[in-house]
Amino acid sequence: MADDLDRDKVAKAYARWAPVYDLVFGQVFERGRKAAIAAVEATGGGRILEVGVGTGISLPDYRRTNRLFGVDISEPMLRKAQERVVAQRLDNVEVLSVMDATKLAFPDGWFDVVVAQYVITAVPDPEGTLDEFLRVVKPGGEIILVNHIGAETGPRKIFEAAFAPLARKLGWRPEFPWQRLRTWVDRAAGVHFIERRPMPPLGHFSLIRFGKALAPPQMQAAQ
């Protein structure tokens, strides 16, 4: 279900954010980032794909035993991430690449975990993006999101609707409803909901986890 966010406009918006992203959003999003990484580590880690890796602000916080792959639509953001990898000698970062989240250049079932922080409301096709996450995560693996979820009622819902046109120019949609994720789970094959946990500030963000079903025994034997 694509909507009125445009891929090129989003890329240009985040190119503008690149020089100041850590300063503007680093502290605001820190609790959510750390919660997502803790959730990744609780799975046992392994080969991790971070979609929307941006400036790589999360990369130093993963255990060095993980193998990290980062993709983003914004080349200027990724240049910042590469500088961070070099400066902090993050030798567990294997790939940093410009990539469309709906067309990931990785094999099926390649990753133990796919993590996307503050991404799903900033892509033109959230459901298509989630489909691609599900494709590249292995059976038994997890998809871990941290994301703003739009209000269902009240003044915040009114504000988000009014703010939406400006927010799209900044590269995201503020009125993203929880029902879109529930509908995706209901129609996607082989995925189940694990948890939704409110995150600061003010619970407007959520840590969300989905699990990919294990392959049936006959398919496991064939593998």
Rank of each mutant, 00 (worst) to 15 (best):
G56K: 05
G171C: 08
L166D: 07
E127D: 15
L78D: 01
P126C: 01
L166I: 15
T129D: 00
L96K: 02
A167P: 10
R173D: 12
Y118M: 02
V123Q: 00
F133M: 05
F163W: 14
L166N: 02
V95H: 05
L130E: 00
K169L: 12
R89K: 11
R156E: 11
A101I: 04
L59H: 00
F69D: 05
G150I: 07
A101K: 01
I143K: 02
L78W: 03
M99V: 05
R63I: 03
D91P: 02
L166K: 13
R79W: 13
L78K: 01
V119S: 02
W110Q: 10
R173C: 10
D61N: 09
D112F: 09
F159V: 11
E160W: 12
L170H: 06
E152H: 13
A105D: 13
F69M: 04
L134W: 03
R173W: 09
Y62G: 05
W172G: 00
G150N: 08
M77G: 06
T102Q: 12
S97G: 12
M99P: 06
D72F: 13
I120C: 00
D61Y: 08
E160D: 06
M77K: 08
V119D: 01
L68V: 09
L90Y: 08
L130T: 00
R89P: 09
G128N: 01
Q179N: 10
E94L: 15
K157I: 11
I149N: 02
L166F: 13
A81Y: 09
P60V: 12
D131S: 13
A164R: 11
D100K: 06
P76K: 07
A87L: 08
I57Q: 01
V98H: 10
T129P: 00
T65S: 15
F163A: 11
G70F: 15
W178E: 10
D100A: 11
F111H: 02
R173Y: 12
L134C: 09
S97R: 14
L181M: 07
A87T: 14
V71F: 12
E83M: 10
W178R: 12
Q82V: 15
E132K: 01
P139S: 06
P139G: 03
V95C: 11
A87H: 12
R180V: 06
P177N: 06
D61C: 02
R79Y: 09
R168C: 08
R63E: 11
D108E: 11
V93K: 04
D125Y: 03
K103Y: 13
G128P: 06
T121M: 14
P126D: 00
I73G: 10
Y62R: 04
R67F: 11
M77A: 07
A87I: 11
L170W: 10
L170F: 14
V98L: 05
R156S: 15
T65Y: 12
W110V: 04
G54P: 08
Y62H: 04
R67D: 12
Q82W: 13
I149Y: 03
D72P: 08
D131H: 11
V136A: 05
I143R: 00
L145M: 05
W110T: 02
T102L: 04
W184H: 05
